[in-house]
């Protein structure tokens, strides 16, 4: 089965949950910026959570399938199809996503999953190194992507409880953990409102606000960073590192966005506002375990609704 891209949209890439196990070789995680949206969309069509789907940005693609199929859309609202539920798409019917009405990134899971060849164990696209995904690049008009053939059927009419999803907002309160250099800053993130800069991308969401000053001037040795790390370059404007973040960074680390709240950052668009609140590691792990339990229940519940 095939998916044909009629119009690619602004930045549409193939993503799964990322490339693990190669950080020691300098290979970034990559994968869906809003991993929860892709995981839920995959579960809704009966795929493994890690199946390859599409991530689109600000303006969605227009596409069609060569045979009848079942898809699910998650993340930001790009119109065309209802979100967070399996939808049957007949062969040849055009699905035309538009500009994002809310959020920044949309996810499309297709029953069976996109059948691109994995690179270093993952189908996610890492654009900077032309690695993985579809020929290592963003999709273009006219691309044809293979989809794994499966027979799948949705039983009855139902919808999921959307309270299990992240509390997406154009002005979220994001929970953070202290970074290694938190003590070296005069101000904390707590005191300020930040705006999302247009220079943001899959590598990092750049924020602008009152400059954060580091009173300790000692030069730092570069250190390991992770998606979620908030680095502060000399200009005092913080950067939240995201999916395509490099593995080692040289700037002071003020804080880290907790795993559970990273989807909130992934869905911010230029001009949106964001505030931060510090939590303990125990709290971060507690909400992470709660989210994983919820997803496990969803997975089990869907087993009898998809065949």
């Amino acid at each position: 089965m095939e998916m044909r891209i009629i119009r690619a949209g602004m930045l549409t890439t193939v993503q799964d949950l990322g490339r693990r196990g190669h950080r020691a070789a300098g290979v970034p995680l990559s994968g869906a910026m809003d991993a929860i949206a892709l995981r839920v969309a995959n579960l809704l069509v009966g795929n493994p959570e890690n199946a390859a789907g599409l991530e689109f940005t600000l303006v969605g693609p227009e596409l069609e399938f060569s045979t009848d199929t079942i898809v699910a859309v998650g993340g930001g609202d790009f119109g065309a199809l209802p979100r967070w539920q399996p939808v049957r798409v007949p062969a040849g019917e055009r699905v035309k996503f538009g500009p994002a009405r809310s959020g920044c990134r949309g996810y499309l899971a297709v029953a069976g999953g996109l059948a691109v060849a994995p690179a270093l164990g993952s189908c996610s696209t890492y654009l900077r190194a032309t690695l993985g995904g579809f020929q290592g690049r963003a999709l273009r008009d006219g691309d044809v992507l293979p989809v794994l053939d499966v027979v799948r059927e949705v039983m009855g009419h139902w919808h999921i409880d959307e309270r299990i999803l992240p509390a997406y907002s154009p002005a979220p309160l994001v929970r953070v953990l202290r970074g290694a250099q938190a003590d070296e800053f005069d101000d904390t993130l707590r005191d300020a409102n930040f705006k999302v800069s247009p220079q943001s991308d899959r590598m990092g969401v750049r924020l602008s606000g009152p400059p954060l000053t580091r009173h300790d001037a000692t030069e730092l040795v570069s250190a390991v960073v992770v998606p979620g790390t908030i680095q502060v370059p000399p200009d005092g404007q913080p950067i939240v590192l995201m999916a395509d973040a490099q593995t080692i960074g040289g700037y002071p680390q003020l804080a880290h966005v907790i795993d559970v709240d990273r989807p909130l950052v992934a869905q911010l668009r230029p001009g949106d506002a964001v505030r931060f609140r510090e939590v303990t590691l125990a709290e971060a792990h507690e909400v992470l375990l709660a989210r994983e339990r919820t997803l496990a229940i969803l997975h089990e519940g869907l087993a009898e609704k998809l065949r």
Binding site: R23, G26, T247
Partner: peptide
Amino acid sequence: AVGFTLGFAY
């Protein structure tokens, strides 16, 4: 260290 870009050795 290896990082910064893929396979780059400091």
